[in-house]
Amino acid sequence: MLKIGITGGIGVGKSVVCHMFALLGIPVYDADTRAKWVMHYDEALKQELTEAFGMESYTIDGELNRAYLAKSAFHDPGKLALLNSIVHPHVAKDFTDWVAANSGAPYIVKEAALMYESEAWRQMDEIIAVFAPMDIRIKRLLQRDTHRTQQDIEAIIGKQLKEEEKMARAQHIVYNDDKQLLIPQVLKLHEQFLTKA
């Protein structure tokens, strides 16, 4: 089965593009959402996180303590790398199981902001990079994530792989720059993937 990865920095519109593929009947795996699910329900992962980051990683009720993990890891590159090294293999296995469950589809799409950073691109046949200019991204994110400041957004963007590198490594680019229409770009890719599949 053809496996298509969709990546791009925060605020470029990956989810919008993925929603279009879903409307065309293509199964879409949202790596961020699935990672949260796996972190909550995968007992082996829960054990590894607790051993690495302490009992506070989960609440008394067994809920993932996202605030605690974020505070523990996101400002320390070493701890963030440790967190990713624990979580990513479990999400990769979850993706493999999900692909098997969707084996009847002509192709599948995996959305992942950290497609290259997590090495998930190695599981894909082709990659689509979604691109939007920085000013548009910041404007969108300030409207969407009202709890974040512009400085918060710029800090997140600063930690992600540069857009130029994502675009250079991808086989396809979708421009979500408020100038080019998204639907024709997605439909063209859909036809290409159906032909290859």
Rank of each mutant, 00 (worst) to 15 (best):
K3T: 13
K3M: 10
G11R: 11
G13E: 08
K14R: 05
S15Q: 01
S15L: 10
M20T: 13
M20Q: 11
M20C: 06
F21G: 03
F21W: 04
Y29A: 00
A31T: 00
A31H: 00
D32R: 04
R34T: 03
A35H: 08
W37Q: 12
V38S: 06
D42M: 00
K46V: 15
S57W: 00
Y58C: 05
Y58H: 06
T59D: 04
I60D: 14
G62H: 05
R66D: 04
R66H: 05
Y68E: 03
L69S: 02
L69G: 00
K71T: 04
S72F: 12
S72W: 15
A73K: 07
A73H: 08
H75N: 10
D76M: 10
K79D: 04
L82Y: 13
L83V: 03
N84C: 03
I86V: 14
V87L: 00
H88M: 06
H90S: 13
H90D: 06
A92P: 00
F95L: 13
T96H: 11
T96R: 13
V99W: 01
I108G: 02
V109N: 01
L114F: 05
S118M: 07
A120C: 09
W121K: 12
R122Y: 08
E126R: 03
I128C: 07
V130D: 03
D135L: 15
D135K: 15
K139Y: 03
K139M: 11
R140C: 12
L141S: 10
R144W: 02
Q150V: 03
I153M: 12
I153Y: 10
E154D: 14
A155D: 01
I157F: 05
I157C: 03
G158R: 11
G158T: 04
Q160D: 01
L161S: 12
L161Q: 11
E163D: 15
M167Y: 04
M167G: 05
Q171G: 15
Q171Y: 07
H172N: 12
H172T: 02
N176C: 10
N176T: 12
D178Y: 10
P184L: 02
P184Q: 01
K188I: 08
L189R: 03
H190L: 06
E191I: 09
Q192L: 11
A197G: 12
